[in-house]
Design a protein around this nucleic acid. Structure first.
Lengths: 196, 196
DNA sequence: ACAAACCCCGAACGACCGTACTATTGTCTG
DNA sequence: CAGACAATAGTACGGTCGTTCGGGGTTTGT
């Protein structure tokens, strides 16, 4: 890895942390440069604008999400086991196991939902991909005979999504120690109602 | 209403709109003064710090939420009808019917969840109140015989909360036109699984 | 070894931030 | 109507924001 790519990676690592805590808008070039041991202009040169920095952060977060959540979970057996693995790893991802401030996407979703621009478009695209991956996992569970054949996988994904959002809310805002137990119990209820 | 209270109300009205779109951090004193036709210092005098402005905004939002969602819904008959009214009005509140940027609390929840301070404490308190109001509504539904007696109302509130969060996400970020239908359908599923 | 490319710095920019002062206006009360 | 006090304006401060520009080092390719 060239020197440039190396420092760029270090910058993004720091930026990910800050973004998960302070939001994308809270990732400031000056502060980031201080933490990375660079000058403002030196850091700025790596990204040609703040907007591109934001997008690079979202890109990096997506890569890590795929590597840390989706990819390993898809190694679980098709159907129910895979779905459980997906959800469990998703919650771990959100529980500050990866970023100190929890799931960056959920924070960015609320931050960018009324701010049109490339960053928002990028976020929407990655979130759509993730939803479709969940739907695909549900379809496989139908094929495997774990879920009933007439299951509306889109509706199923919506409800699963709500459970994860609820976990984030209870865990990270309310600091409710029972958040994980509630999410797991809700998942079981959803799985039971989807069973063949 | 005295002159001071009048302008203060006008300021907060504008601040609510901006906060729902740009987040609490995006509510800036200079921009707010411009829109309200005041000088920066004139506006600043009404709140003695940015932090107190933030809290005033959250306070105003809570009052409006109580007046626009909770109070009218609690006029519906006890039990199931009231719960339906609560959820329906909650979604309307989030659907930009009140603020252009949708539910301010959900945005603030993600924004403040890692930023300790009075604003966060205030938000947590109001959200806890709202959750408890939902739990209370569920208890009443149990008393009325609409919900089964062994229902875990806290778990029930968690799952309902997830549905509302999911609606916000699908509606405001993804701009999914079927968001409302999905939320309503998910509600019916939750109600059915809670029925006596 | 020399040119070219890459990486980073320092200084400066205009704009805006929150906040502190003082002064001036406006509104209410006795 | 006058005096008291609340409400607003004006100005200034130090700081940070994103961004631009020119110029050094340092590495790389030939």
């Amino acid at each position: 890895m060239s020197k440039g790519a190396e420092t760029r990676a270090a910058i993004l690592d720091e930026a990910l942390s800050r973004a998960s805590v302070h939001g994308l808008g809270g990732v400031t070039i000056g502060e980031l440069a201080k933490r990375a041991g660079l000058s403002k202009s030196g850091l700025f040169a790596h990204f040609k604008s703040k907007e591109q920095l934001d997008i690079a952060v979202l890109d990096e977060a997506r890569d890590r999400f795929v590597a840390g959540v989706i990819a390993p979970a898809f190694r679980a057996p098709r159907g129910l086991p895979r779905i459980r693995a997906l959800f469990q790893r998703w919650l771990e991802w959100d529980a500050a196991g990866f970023q100190p401030g929890g799931c960056l996407f959920m924070a960015a979703a609320m931050e960018l939902d009324d701010q049109p621009g490339p960053a928002r478009d990028h976020l929407v695209a990655t979130q759509r991909d993730w939803i479709e991956a969940l739907q695909q996992a549900a379809r496989i569970a139908v094929e495997e005979g774990h879920f009933r054949a007439d299951l509306d996988v889109e509706q199923w994904a919506y409800e699963l999504w709500g459970l994860a959002l609820g976990y984030h809310f209870y865990h990270r805002l309310l600091r409710d120690p029972r958040a994980l137990a509630r999410a797991e119990r809700a998942l079981e209820a959803l799985l039971a109602s989807s069973a063949a």
